[in-house]
Design a protein around this nucleic acid. Structure first.
Lengths: 228, 228
DNA sequence: CGGGGACTTGAATCAGGTCAACCCCAGTGG
DNA sequence: CCACTGGGGTTGACCTGATTCAAGTCCCCG
């Protein structure tokens, strides 16, 4: 279940990918603290759970992670999907405030929270990187809230596809790793509405669904137009 | 328009109020940097606008501030309301990413961003406070997103009222400073739905609307129940 | 080849939005 | 003192878009 793996080149690469902002000190910290601990999680495995003590900080090496919260009525809201290079787990308090799961198979670097906290307490640059990181999350969360509050189903789905495209470096051919249910729970819709909307977009010639998870954006410009 | 005022005791108090988390180093920074600059904004005045250079960092001394973003179609989404003790304005980038306005008359402490940034670059504790602050925002924003994604109109309005009550130290008699439109734009609803929902809550005997802005929570326990 | 999970699709329903009329009240000017 | 005005708020009738309910289909995997 948790194979120890090691792949120097991968770890180097990760620092560059999808770093929404460069974090040299944080990279350095991961390099010096995470040397040994790299762990693999199979599809669907829980990385940490809401309410658990936040003893570790993680960075995605490979795969996709979903971070979500459950409401009292059992409904699930996915806060974000995390991709290689993204950090997860740092909390201001002692407990995790949401749950993280592997969407497909995932490989993570792991750093003890305490060690990182001690390093940060003595290193302004590292603390500054953590600050910028959390500001980025804050920004992303606000953007997400805006979508949930004000956009219709079509805009949400289109926005999601465009986001995936950006994530994949602007590619027009997307391999969605997540299920329709994941997408729905991220966009605040039902699985039915997501499915219908995708079908409609295909009917309109804007996308092509070659298989369940393979989406081709036929007219990215027009889609961006629709997205506002 | 911008009267210079000074009220030592007020400024001391502010540091304690609604500090969702103590920030001693940040308080200290405000104390040492903001000595002179305290400014009053009249009802509706813009404090800073989306896209403007973020040259200052502010802290609310008195009054309520709304922070919002506008969509391409002109709709407004209020991200948050800020109350005495809350900080606004720090950005990871160079520009403000949303607009801040005075809801009623507002008094703010003002610190030059550059001075604060220089202080932070040499002070781990201060940078750490900024980090915890942005983590709090992130948390709040995620909570907000959850509400927008998954709750019905009644739950949203009830949640808002309860939030106002908490803000007022748990009081059952609330003096809403914002308009119905503000509430609607915060909750992702229309003014009509907010109005209807309030009327319905009153009809159900859960609240009492003594005047437009005066709300009494008659059954806070039951309301909390409804909120989940 | 059979089973089951993931997905799609149609029809009925409903919550909230839209449109439109109206009220309430503070401020203003006659 | 009263009439006028305008902004904020309420309320009703109707509409629409997303959910719900209910079949189905597709496809992966044993």
């Amino acid at each position: 279940m948790n194979t120890q793996i090691k792949h120097e080149q991968d770890l180097e690469d990760v620092a560059q990918k999808r770093s929404r902002r460069a974090s040299p000190a944080l990279d350095q910290a991961f390099r010096s603290l995470a040397g040994a601990l790299v762990r693999r999680y199979p599809r669907g495995a829980e990385i940490f759970g809401e309410g658990e003590p936040a003893n570790f900080v993680y960075r995605v090496v490979e795969g996709t992670v979903r971070v979500y919260r459950l409401l009292s009525d059992g409904r699930r809201q996915i806060c974000d999907f995390l991709y290689p290079g993204d950090v997860l787990g740092p909390e201001a308090g002692l407990l995790h405030r949401n749950t993280a799961e592997a969407v497909g198979d995932v490989v993570l670097q792991i750093v003890p929270r305490k060690a990182l906290a001690e390093m940060a307490a003595a290193d302004v640059d590292l603390t500054g990187d953590l600050w910028r990181l959390s500001m980025d999350w804050f920004q992303r969360s606000q953007d997400h809230a805006l979508i949930l509050a004000r956009q219709g189903a079509t805009e949400r789905v289109v926005g999601f596809l465009l986001g995936c495209s950006d994530q994949a470096g602007g590619a027009d051919d997307l391999n969605l790793v997540m299920t329709r249910q994941d997408i729905a729970d991220y966009l605040g819709l039902t699985i039915h509405t997501v499915s219908r909307t995708l079908s409609q977009l295909q009917a309109d010639g804007l996308i092509e669904l070659s298989s369940l998870r393979q989406v081709r954006l036929c007219d990215a410009d027009n889609l961006r137009e629709m997205n506002g």
